Amino acid sequence: MSVSRILLGLLEPSSQHGYVLRRRYDEWFGTSRPLKSAQVYATLNRLDRDGLISLAGVAAGVGPDRRVYAISEAGVVELDRWLDEPDVPEVTASRKVLFAKVLIALSSGRPAEPMLDRQRQAHLARMRELRVQRQSGDLLGQLDADFEMYHLDADLRWIDGAAARLNRLAALVNAAPDPAAAVPGTHGARQENR
Rank of each mutant, 00 (worst) to 15 (best):
H123L: 13
L47W: 10
A175G: 06
R49C: 10
D50M: 11
I104Q: 09
V68A: 05
E192Q: 15
R5A: 12
R22Y: 14
L11K: 04
P34Y: 03
N45P: 10
S32E: 12
G161Y: 03
M1F: 07
L166A: 00
R128C: 08
E12Y: 05
Q191S: 08
V173P: 07
P184E: 02
R120W: 10
S2M: 07
L35Y: 05
A42D: 12
T186Q: 04
R190T: 07
R24K: 05
R5Q: 09
D153Y: 14
E27K: 03
E85Q: 14
T186D: 04
N193S: 15
A145T: 00
R157E: 09
R110I: 05
A164T: 02
T92S: 12
L152T: 01
Y69E: 07
D48N: 15
P114S: 03
Y69W: 11
D87E: 14
L172K: 00
S15F: 10
S54N: 14
R33F: 08
A180S: 13
G57K: 15
I159R: 02
Y41Q: 09
L55C: 12
R190N: 11
A164C: 08
A171T: 10
M1E: 14
V132I: 09
Q133W: 04
R168P: 13
A154G: 04
D146K: 02
L166N: 01
S136L: 10
G185N: 01
A38D: 15
Y69K: 04
L98C: 07
L10M: 07
I71D: 06
A164S: 00
R165T: 06
A170E: 15
L98V: 11
H17Y: 15
L124T: 02
K101E: 13
H151K: 10
P177Y: 13
G61H: 14
L8K: 00
D48I: 02
F99R: 13
V88K: 14
L169M: 02
R128E: 15
L169C: 00
P114L: 05
R95C: 05
A180I: 04
